[in-house]
Design a protein around this nucleic acid. Structure first.
Lengths: 207, 207
DNA sequence: CTCAAAAAATGAACGCGTTCAATATTTTTT
DNA sequence: AAAAAATATTGAACGCGTTCATTTTTTGAG
């Protein structure tokens, strides 16, 4: 008979999460006040804090969902064959960028990144950083796969180049979310240009 | 006789700035309350806001000083001759990193970066971004200089590779300031490893 | 020197995220 | 079913950055 409590708990959790995401979408993260979220969910402010450690933690659920999905899509891309390095990179990176605004707005990304830098010791930041590392590793994996298939020259340090490329991808994404004018296509074009020389130089034989 | 007002103004400006940097160093940025800064400077809270737009703006003076100095040092490095690409990059990047904690603590850097991402439309963020771009351009300039001297292979897109390398430098610096354990030497070693393959591939002839 | 206008200083008040002691509800024990 | 223990809810209060109406100081004209 302890069902009642668990039932109510799950229900409130869902209602709060729903209210928060709705409000974040409608008025943006900063303007969505805890008081408003609590009211929309039909609970008090105090109760909100029983369910979530703080406002920022509400973002992590969303960020996490976003990145998990893109990681899965990335694995599928790595499994396929690729003509050349530049194309393979564009495909993987393009998937990252295309997917990025599915659940999160630029403002929400900015908030998440900002929090993760400002308070590195928090669980929020640590989870965010872990997701970043998995993405970085995925780029390394792609390059290693290309090397095994002879698309990338032997002797090239896959992890070193993978990290280099991913850090550029990530930094450019920061520029992207900082600039409301910039669109995904412009972002992809810039990164492709930045990758081009390295992609060419690390290609096996040809060129 | 309007000297008195200007005199007092300059004096207060200096006193507030001094108090702020002293407190930032002593207790950290977050724990340094405006009230404390004002009190230490011998003015009221309201007066603080007459002299500085907000707390974050106090950081920009420091960040700016930091980056201006490192840019000047960077120009001197570019002017010199270099054996090979990897060494030249290590020297410039090493200078960036070595200098980075002269005026700012890791916590202050985190705050500055965090602010610049969270509120891109503010003057603070825009000034920060402009400094970043000048650093990026300097790395491009180094590579172009190396190309003109025959150290870098002809045909390599200097701006593309420069941006790629700088964005990695910058992203790794974020990792560095997020991790209180990490030291400058470890940071330099990681970046050198990440740069190595590209540096080798873009080298003229030899290898 | 006087006084009105301009400039600067002030601190109480506000907004919002977060905390916590008091209260209410559910579960367990008897 | 009543009492005790465990758990959850609540909203007033707090901290701190920021604002703004009011007061004080400085200035230059008469």
């Amino acid at each position: 008979m302890s069902g009642l409590r668990a039932q109510k708990k799950a229900d409130k959790n869902r209602r709060i999460l729903e209210a928060a995401t709705t409000l974040f979408r409608k008025v943006g993260y900063d303007s969505a006040r805890i008081e408003d979220i609590a009211e929309m969910a039909g609970v008090s402010v105090g109760t909100f804090y029983n369910y979530f450690k703080n406002k920022g933690d509400m973002l992590m659920a969303t960020v996490s969902m976003e990145v998990e999905e893109v990681l899965a899509a990335g694995d599928a891309i790595i499994a396929r064959e690729h003509e050349d390095v530049a194309t393979a990179l564009s495909e993987l990176i393009g998937k990252y960028y295309d997917h990025s605004l599915t659940y999160l707005s630029k403002e929400m990304w900015r908030t998440a990144m900002s929090l993760s830098i400002a308070q590195p010791e928090t669980p929020f930041s640590q989870r965010y950083t872990a997701l970043d590392h998995r993405l970085s590793k995925q780029v390394c994996d792609l390059i290693r796969a290309l090397q095994n298939r002879g698309v990338v020259r032997k002797g090239v340090d896959c992890d070193a180049t993978g990290e280099l490329i991913f850090n550029n991808v990530n930094m450019m994404f920061i520029e992207f979310v900082k600039d409301e004018e910039m669109d995904v296509d412009g972002l992809k074009a810039s990164v492709a240009r930045q990758n081009a020389p390295l992609a060419l130089l690390m290609s096996g034989d040809a060129a």
